[in-house]
Computed example of a mutant assay.
Amino acid sequence: MVFLRASGRFQVQVSVLTGQGVMGNYNMHTTVKVVHNGKVYEVPALTGNALKHWHSVHAAKAYEALGGKQLNEFCRKGVGLRGKDMNGNDADSESVAIEDFCNDLHGFLIPKKQIKRDSLVKFAFGIPVLTPEVLESVSKFAVTHNRVDPTQKGQTGEMMVFRQEYASGYLYGFAVSMDLDYLMTPIYESLKEGGSSNKSVDAAEKARRAKAAFAGLISTVTGGYGSKAARALPISSLKEMVVALSPKPIPQLVHGAYDNYIEKSIDVLKAYLAIVGGNAHVICYGVTCPEAERSAGKAEKSGANIEVKNVDKLEELASTVLDLIKKYIEETPETKK
C-alpha cells in the first residue's frame, strides 16, 4: 500500500500559470482572491486542474520511459480525453479502462455508460505564500506578441498583434495528494459487487506506475506546467519540497503557502497516527526539518512512528521516495511477485 502526500514552494517569473480566457486580442491570466490578516489580495494563480493536467502529461512520459506499454494514443500524446480503452473507444468497464495508465491514475467519467473513477491524484491551487511581503510583490502584466497569418500574404492582416498576460511571483506554494495504493485496482466495480476485489496485482507494473506518478510530480513542480507554454516556457525554480509516505492512508500535508507548513504538517501526521497507529516517512528537500535531528518521533501508547529525513539534492529525495514505494508495494499482500 502506498499513500503519498507532498507540499512545497517554487519561484516563478514571466509565466502564464493558468489562462483565464480571451477578450478580443487580449489573453488574460487567471487570478484569485486570497485573505491574509483580514486583508484581501487578488493574485495570479495556478489552478489545481492545470497542475493535474500537466502532471498526467509528464507522468505518462515517465511511465513510457520506464518501459510501460499500457497507454492508449490519447494518454501517449498528452490529450486529456479519459475513459477510452486501449483501442481508443469508450471503455465498457472500469477494469478495461484502467488498463490505460492515464485512466488508472487520473480517473475518468463516461456519462452514457454510467462508469466513473475518481482521480488518484489531487492538486490544490498554486498560490503565493501568505505573507504581506510576498503577496504585495506578486505582479501580473501584459506582453505584446505578433502572429503571422499565412492566408493573408501581402495584406494588412499578415501580422496580427495580440497581448498575453504573464505573472511573476517570489514564492508560490503547492500541495498534492496521491493515493497510489489503488493503482490497477477497480474501485467502483468492487463496491457494486458487494466487496473488494481479490484480483492479484502485478507488483512490477504497479511499482512502475507509482514511480512514474512521482517522476511526473518532480517534472511538473520544476517547471513542467504553463497553459501558454507555446509562447514561452515557464521560468521556474523549485525551492523546497516535503514528501510524506505511508502504507496506510494519511492526512494531506499543510499547503506550502502557509507559514511553518512543515512543522504543522508533521504535527498533523503525529496527531493522526497517535489515534490510528502505523508509521510514516517524511523527506524534506531544500529546507531543514527540525524533527530530523531527533531522528524519529514516537507517539506514546499508539506505537505510531514518524521517521524524518533531510536531503540536500533532488536526486536523493527521488531515490529515497522510490525505495519506499518499492518497499511498500512488495509488502502488500495482493501484489504478486
Rank of each mutant, 00 (worst) to 15 (best):
Y182E: 15
H58Q: 11
E99P: 03
H29I: 12
S236E: 12
P290A: 09
T220C: 08
D202I: 04
L17D: 04
G80D: 12
D312I: 01
L238T: 09
E205F: 03
S93C: 09
L217K: 03
R9L: 01
A203V: 04
E94H: 07
D202V: 06
F174W: 13
T47K: 08
I306R: 07
V35P: 02
V268G: 02
T332F: 11
E136R: 15
L183N: 07
E315C: 00
F108L: 02
K313G: 07
A257M: 10
I262G: 00
L180W: 07
L245M: 15
L130A: 10
I262A: 03
K239G: 01
Q70T: 12
Q164A: 05
G68F: 08
E42R: 14
D100P: 01
G80L: 10
V16L: 05
Q20G: 09
A212Y: 06
K298M: 13
K228R: 14
Q252E: 15
T18I: 02
K270L: 15
M178E: 10
K309F: 09
V287D: 07
G224T: 07
M160W: 07
M160F: 09
D267H: 00
P44I: 06
L324K: 12
I250P: 00
P251I: 07
S236R: 02
K298N: 08
E64W: 07
